[in-house]
Design a protein around this nucleic acid. Structure first.
Ligand SMILES: [Zn+2]
Length: 279
DNA sequence: AACCAATCCTGTATGC
DNA sequence: TGCATACAGGATTGGT
């Protein structure tokens, strides 16, 4: 469900409410989302710990505890992190509830339960391969045109799967990749290493643009996404191609096409985003 | 090493 | 209505 802008909004929205608060109890309803350690250990290790910080890296949420451990949360497709008063009703799909010292609670809820919770020490981070191998963050000083160009030239795959690979750019997902390719007018099946310098520059700019606007709009809410306070985002109203099959391209009025690429629904304008002979 | 299809899981939409 | 099928903001696994 959530890509970088959605995760960023969740973290920014609730961090000030939970930082420096003590976890008085951990209630485990659906323990299969806890990947490590065991559910019992997870609960015991978090009990009476103080949340020192809540941060984001890629699509991961990193909760630091006062004993140095890290509670690593990944929402995958339908995970939510919700902050509520202790007397408020909880989501039907709640999996884990962190009860805080001030009569509030943080709830991990997940319809499909594809999301993951891992409680680790700092020297165990390399065990979480997905987190350890993340590439540069959009909008960061590390994410330069040169960085993108180097990664692209090392790749033999198509540009869309390249951008979905978190080792290249951290935090992009299916929506924002299609949007960035639409804005930079690049066909999703182009080979990553076939892009011209001009196209790489436009793509770099488009990635930063869609991520920045996604964050500013509070994320994209199609069905499940809500921020940490249960509010919808508004970026779904501004999309150029994603989920717009058969609708008019906002640049040229051609109808948006949908294909399946590496198992992911993929939207593009067949007029603005042409496939050259270098495929 | 790197790519890609299958897989995890449940809910919703669509078609017959 | 009932049932089957496809599909969904993702990442890991295993085969090639
Ligand atoms: Zn167009």
């Amino acid at each position: 469900m959530p890509e970088m802008p959605e995760v960023e909004n969740i973290v920014i929205g609730i961090k000030d409410f939970i930082e420096n608060k003590k976890i008085v109890d951990v209630e485990i309803i659906k323990g299969d989302v806890i990947k490590s350690p065991s559910s019992d250990e997870y609960r015991k290790l978090l009990q009476d710990k103080i949340i020192k910080s809540l941060k984001r890296r890629g699509k991961y949420i990193i909760m630091s505890l006062d004993d140095g451990r890290l509670n690593i949360i990944h929402l995958r497709m339908t995970g939510k992190l919700l902050y509520k008063q202790e007397n408020e009703d909880i989501d039907k799909y709640s999996c884990v509830i962190y009860h805080l010292e001030d009569k509030t609670k943080l709830i991990y809820a997940d319809i499909r339960r594809l999301g993951t919770l891992d409680l680790i020490t700092t020297d165990e981070i390399s065990r979480l391969k997905g987190l350890y191998t993340l590439g540069a963050e959009p909008l960061s000083s590390e994410f330069t045109i040169g960085y993108l160009k180097d990664c692209l030239n090392k790749s033999k795959t198509k540009i869309k799967p390249f951008l979905l690979n978190q080792k290249n750019v951290a935090g992009l997902g299916n929506i924002y990749v299609d949007e960035a390719l639409a804005i930079s007018k690049i066909h999703p099946e182009r080979k990553a290493n076939s892009l011209s310098d001009e196209e790489i520059e436009k793509l770099h700019q488009a990635i930063n643009l869609v991520i920045n606007e996604g964050i500013r709009d509070g994320g994209t809410s199609f069905r499940d996404y809500r921020n940490g306070l249960g509010e919808k985002g508004s970026h779904q109203d501004k999309l150029y191609v994603y989920n717009r099959k058969g609708k008019e391209c906002r640049f040229c009025d051609t109808l948006i096409t949908k294909i399946v690429l590496n198992g992911r629904g993929t939207y593009f304008c067949p007029n603005c985003q042409k496939l050259n002979d270098d495929k």
